[in-house]
Simulated assay, not measured.
Amino acid sequence: MYNQSKIILLSLVLFTVAGCNISRTVNKTLYPPANTKWVNIEVKNPSQYTKPFPIEVRYISYGCMKKRISGFDGSVITEPSYNVIGIPMQQGSSDIWEAKVAMTGGGSCKWALSAVTLGIEYIDATHLGKDLVPGTAIGVTLAFDNDASRNGQFTSSIGDLNITRKYYPYIRERKIAEKTKSLSLLGKENFLSYRVSKFSSIYFYPEVDEMKIVRYIEPSKKTDGVYSKIIYPDGSVAPEKTLFPDFDKVDKMKIN
């Protein structure tokens, strides 16, 4: 599922939307002008078991400001409004999926593109285990303005952006709080972050190698001295209390 991408994108959005003049509801209707610049996005689907999830797009408006109460001192803070929408990708030739996003959203609030999240997720997990269900997604978050990139964790990119990364299946068996077996994708970074400028196209071409499967297995119950295990494709086990798999180790691992 793309819940993880939703968390990344929606964490940028501050809650409580008031009206353009605080007394009226924000008009979130988009009317891209005829002369708007469009962002061309391509995602290559690497497997019959995966699929690009709908692009999550965030627009920002300084024309329709909102007010919220500070949780620190109760003061009133005036901030821009946000408008988050989903845009389904369309399958083009073969395994290439495409979408276009307007830089200028227009409308009465003068919406402008701020951030986009794109990527892929498993839609079928049973080929690697009959009890497996699809887990979290992987992908890219793009910042188009200073507001979206204000946390400083974005790599600067000038010109068209071509991204190719390798991912491996990651099976997680949870047995304590919830009893689930999910299949996700493991990457060096599950979501890459870029601050883009002077571009027209974004290309994301992920690769999935299902010859190397990483497993996370929880114990059946909480017991002192008994910890979850991370098992690598060659059968080796990560040191006790390891929380996340070592991607570089998996990537360099030779499997017969």
Rank of each mutant, 00 (worst) to 15 (best):
D209N: 15
V226D: 08
K175W: 03
Y167E: 05
G187F: 13
K179T: 08
R195S: 14
R172P: 01
D246F: 02
I217R: 15
I230Y: 10
N190S: 08
L183R: 02
K181R: 14
D251E: 13
S220M: 12
I255D: 10
V196R: 04
S200P: 01
K175F: 00
F199W: 04
Y194I: 08
K249F: 10
I230N: 06
E173N: 15
N162S: 08
Y232F: 05
I171H: 03
K181P: 05
L192W: 14
K221W: 07
F199P: 00
S182F: 02
K254P: 02
E218Y: 12
E218F: 06
L183V: 07
L243P: 02
R174N: 14
Y170I: 00
Y167L: 06
I231T: 07
K179S: 14
K254W: 08
K166Q: 13
T242P: 14
N162G: 01
K221D: 11
K252H: 13
T164D: 02
K188D: 11
V208S: 00
N190C: 01
Y205F: 15
P239S: 12
G225T: 06
K166P: 09
S236D: 09
K188L: 07
G187A: 09
P239Y: 12
S236N: 07
P239I: 07
S197L: 02
K222D: 13
I231F: 03
Y168E: 01
Y227V: 09
K254G: 03
E178I: 12
Y232Q: 00
V196S: 08
D209A: 09
Y168K: 01
D246V: 01
D234P: 08
S182C: 07
Y227H: 13
V208G: 01
E210T: 09
I171E: 05
V196A: 11
T242Q: 11
R215C: 03
K221L: 11
I255F: 10
I255E: 06
I255Q: 09
N162D: 12
R215P: 07
L185A: 13
I176A: 08
G225R: 04
A177G: 08
T180P: 05
R165G: 03
D251A: 14
V196E: 11
F199M: 06
K181S: 15
K222Y: 10
E210G: 00
V250N: 04
S201C: 01
R172T: 10
Y170E: 00
R174S: 13
K229T: 15
K212C: 01
S182K: 14
T180L: 14
I213R: 10
I217W: 04
T242E: 12
I171M: 03
K198M: 08
Y194C: 09
D234C: 10
E218V: 08
M211I: 04
S220P: 07
I231E: 13
V214A: 06
T164F: 02
Y168F: 15
K166A: 11
I231W: 00
D209P: 11
G235A: 09
S184D: 07
S197H: 04
S228W: 04
D251S: 14
I163S: 07
R172Q: 11
D246L: 01
E210I: 01
E189L: 04
L183M: 08
S200Q: 13
D224L: 08
M253L: 15
P245M: 03
E178L: 10
Y205E: 11
I217Y: 09
Y168N: 02
Y167Q: 03
F191C: 00
V226T: 12
K241Q: 13
E189C: 01
V214Q: 08
P219K: 11
T164G: 03
Y194F: 15
I255Y: 07
D248M: 04
